[in-house]
Amino acid sequence: MQVPKKLIDRSNFLIENGRFVTLATQSPDGAWASTVNYVPLREPLRLLWYSLREARHSQNIHAHPMVSGSIFVTGLPGLGLDGAQFTGRASPVTGDNLEHISEFYYQRNFPDDETRQNWRLPLSEFHGEGHRRFYVVEIDSWWLLDVDQWLVDMNDQRVAVPLAPLVRK
């Protein structure tokens, strides 16, 4: 089945421009939602962010790595907003890849050198006894707000979008 180009374009716009994801995690005490500032990674499609190790969502990821999330952007022409939902598996970034991931995150999130230097935390914060970790969620399912159908019947529905066309921008 051919995926409509507009669904791929909308998905890529959200992935590249959303900046924040509401991440839903689970623990024995129940569900929890947190908003985190992400940058996208492709091949496979992933979202990267950092959080405190002791944050509730970080602890939940350690115990139950399956997560879901939503990304939305407002102020758009037409309907005024667009949004996506996803599911995936989250994990902390460890090992030799940490320095590269940190550099990518800060370069992508803060393109201006001065701003980046003001926000950059030392790499020691992200391993060993450091208080923070980079996390990545590898997305396994993706849905968009079905804007076309909403314009017909105002029913709030989602349309599934296959991941293969979203791997590369």
Rank of each mutant, 00 (worst) to 15 (best):
L47H: 04
I15H: 00
G78V: 02
F110Q: 02
R158V: 00
S70A: 14
T115Q: 14
L121Y: 12
S68C: 11
Q2P: 10
A24V: 09
L123T: 00
G78E: 05
L14M: 08
H57M: 00
F104M: 03
L45H: 02
L151E: 08
P92W: 08
P111I: 04
A24D: 13
E54K: 11
T35G: 04
E129D: 15
F126C: 14
G18E: 03
P65S: 05
D96P: 00
H127W: 15
R53N: 14
T25S: 10
G128Y: 14
S34T: 04
M154I: 03
V39F: 02
M154R: 11
L163E: 15
S68M: 03
A31R: 14
V93N: 07
H57V: 00
P44C: 00
V136I: 15
R120V: 01
L23K: 06
S102K: 04
R158I: 00
R19K: 14
A33N: 14
E129N: 14
L81K: 12
L123H: 09
V167C: 14
E129C: 05
S91L: 03
V147I: 08
V167F: 15
R42E: 07
L81H: 13
A63M: 10
E16M: 13
K6T: 07
A63L: 06
D156H: 13
D29A: 10
N109Y: 00
S58R: 02
Y38H: 06
L41K: 04
L7M: 03
E16G: 01
G95Y: 08
I139G: 09
V136Q: 15
W143F: 12
P4C: 06
Y50T: 02
F86T: 12
W143T: 13
E129V: 06
K5F: 01
V36A: 07
Y50Q: 07
N17K: 11
E138R: 08
Y135I: 00
T87H: 09
E43Y: 05
A90H: 02
Q107Y: 12
K169A: 12
R42T: 03
D156R: 15
I15E: 02
E114M: 10
M154Y: 13
N37H: 10
L41Q: 12
F126H: 07
S124L: 01
T87G: 05
N109K: 01
W142L: 10
N155M: 12
I61N: 06
V159H: 12
D96F: 01
S70M: 11
A33C: 15
I15Q: 05
M66Q: 06
Q149W: 06
P111D: 06
D82Q: 05
P4Q: 07
R89A: 08
R133C: 09
V67C: 11
N109G: 05
L81V: 11
W32C: 12
G83T: 12
S11C: 04
S91G: 08
P40S: 09
